[in-house]
């Protein structure tokens, strides 16, 4: 079992630098540029394709008034990301609450489209999502941002609105839960 977070700092491969983002001057350009980013993030964090479209709408309804005041395209991406994470957190909390009172519908994670995944890997993927469902939203988000989206610890702390130590602890908690499940798979 490979862990993405160890106690000691370690070297890690960073993703290749992306092409410089295009400038956006209108809401349409803004949406066309960033809605795929939000949709992708939302799907991987929620694991529920049918909620992605609503999430994208929520994010851009919040963001449409402020995007013109941000001139730096890199900052714009980061800002949209922050809003998206906030909305994902709301949804995860709502799911958890509904699950607690027995109202949340069971999501079939085995039907997720996973690139080049074998049937066995799909089973593992579904188990991972089911485990994530049992975790508090903040723990799940911290793990996802750090381990899947490869955000740095300071950035995870910023997006989660907590200290680095708390972010580190949350990631470790999630890792421990996932490792336990993976050992059984």
């Amino acid at each position: 079992m490979e862990h993405c977070l160890d106690v000691k700092p370690q070297l890690r491969l960073l993703p290749a630098p992306a092409a410089p983002p295009r400038a956006v001057n209108t809401l349409d350009e803004f949406f066309r540029e960033f809605s795929p980013v939000v949709a992708r993030l939302g799907l991987r964090m929620l694991g529920r394709p049918h909620e992605v479209e609503d999430l994208v709408q929520d994010v851009f309804l919040d963001a449409h008034l402020g995007f013109l005041s941000i001139r730096d395209p890199a900052a714009l991406r980061s800002w949209v990301y922050t809003i998206a994470v906030r909305h994902v957190r709301k949804r995860l909390r709502r799911h958890r609450l509904r699950r607690f009172v027995g109202l949340d519908e069971v999501s079939d994670y085995a039907t997720l489209t996973c690139r080049d995944a074998s049937p066995e890997q799909r089973v593992v993927l579904a188990a991972v999502f089911r485990t994530l469902d049992t975790l508090p939203a903040d723990v799940r988000i911290a793990w996802h941002l750090h381990c899947v989206e490869r955000e740095t610890l300071p950035r995870v702390a910023e997006l989660c609105g907590c200290s680095r130590a708390t972010a580190h602890r949350r990631i470790a908690v999630a890792q421990a839960h996932i490792a336990e499940v993976m050992d059984h798979e």
């Binding site: 079992m1 490979e2 993405c4 795929p36 949709a39 992708r40 799907l43 991987r44 694991g47 394709p49 992605v52 997720l112 489209t113 996973c114 690139r115 080049d116 995944a117 066995e120 890997q121 593992v124 993927l125 991972v128 999502f129 996802h144 381990c147 899947v148 996932i178 993976m182 050992d183 798979e185």
Partner: peptide, 18 residues
Amino acid sequence: MSDVPEKLVDRVELDGWD
């Protein structure tokens, strides 16, 4: 088990976001 969970989640794709 050699599948790393975060790598599997990373490979999840959204169908039809064209």
